[in-house]
Design a protein around this nucleic acid. Structure first.
Lengths: 214, 214
DNA sequence: GCTATAAATGACCCGCGAGTTATTACGCCT
DNA sequence: AGGCGTAATAACTCGCGGGTCATTTATAGC
């Protein structure tokens, strides 16, 4: 409706891909892969459906691009923070969990998680990418930290991977709760409060007791 | 190809709905709602697509029936077991978590969880039903138990709902891991072992310490 | 300004799958 | 036995959405 002779569209080869991925992210997060409509993605990106195919071969490739872009930076940062830390295990955990909570809640990572879970059967390649690039590295950093803390006698014995689950499981549950149940009437969850209280609970179970025998 | 004059089909009004729901459960669990094909459900139920519509109005109603049937009995049993228990909190938890783990892994409940998460935006009614009938009651039983244990001085202070998250979160994470990540190369998770170790960790953080001041 | 290039469009195609319906045939009931 | 009510079928419709392509139009270079 631009009556005042502005051009109908502009050539912006550089900017398009990013805008398209952003729009696709929003629609995929809202609807899931199968129910997302290319027309809607195109509309939100301010572009025609045909233009999508100038930059992405198929809907599925677009899906992959979305997951890549939305997630990579956060993982790297959490990893760096964890590996740079030098103090006692308890302090590290007290810093790390709230950081993860904030990062997951802040970015759209939670929506991506939901998306990956929902479409994992239909797009195993996506779930695999997610596992290889996000979950496995994070878990490996975490259980490495736990293992070293065990060697120093700070943390009780036990499978370090299971200990890692004990640490982050409740956080993940909280994230999914917010994403899935709150919109349909579930009682709100304060992720920061959850992280704070759970860290103390988990540490109570993980740390070797000072006055204890074993 | 029954050349030897058996009838082409039989009238089994009573048995059909159950068989259809079972077949639908399998297909929905594998593909998710949107990607599930009514033709495939019908084929697995040994029935024509038209027959589905004799028993269910729409695909979505069939989806609802699946969730209802697959989940209700398990919840009731866990709830009953939890409320009947009379001993100290620690023993209850040591019995309850492995039981939940077994029940979730054994039935197809894990697949339903994945399904509900994936389709929650497109079918809020389903997520709501799940919340009202499954999650909220379970959580309420659990945090009730914790609250009473706190009153008896067995469990440390803190939001009982968050404590409940601390207890079951890692279990849920394990379930999702098995469901989503193991099929694409994730390291296997032994749910029973996870439950056993995590229970002790969680109790270590939840139980009031005998020799402690507060 | 004019032209060549390629970014972008939007009308189109076509297969697929949810839902419908005219027809068939099972099996109870007398 | 045979007739009737209805469970069940199978071929159908029809709209939707992923993907295509001939055409339009911005813009860089001369």
């Amino acid at each position: 409706m631009s009556v005042a002779g502005g051009p109908k569209w502009r050539r912006r080869k550089e900017a398009r891909p990013g805008e398209i991925v952003a729009a696709a992210f929003a629609v995929f997060a809202e609807k899931g892969f199968a129910a997302a409509r290319l027309d809607e993605i195109a509309a939100r990106a301010g572009v025609s459906k045909g233009a999508l195919y100038l930059y992405f071969e198929t809907k599925e490739e677009l899906f992959h691009a979305v997951v890549r872009d939305a997630v990579a930076p956060n993982v790297a940062q959490v990893r760096a923070a964890a590996e740079a830390f030098e103090g006692p295990f308890a302090d590290l955990v007290r810093a790390l969990l709230p950081m993860m909570a904030a990062r997951i809640a802040g970015s759209g990572a939670a929506k991506v998680v939901k998306m990956v879970i929902g479409e994992s059967r239909n797009f195993p390649a996506l779930a695999q990418h997610w596992h290889d690039e996000v979950v496995a590295p994070t878990l490996s950093v975490l259980s490495g930290l736990i293992e070293r803390a065990q060697a120093r006698g700070e943390v009780r014995p036990g499978d370090p991977r299971v200990h890692a689950f004990s640490l982050v499981g409740p956080l993940m549950l909280g994230v999914l709760w917010r994403e899935v149940l709150e919109p349909v009437g579930g009682a709100p969850v304060d992720l920061q409060a959850l992280a704070a209280q759970h860290v103390e609970t988990a540490l109570g179970g993980l740390l070797a007791r000072e006055g204890a025998a074993a």
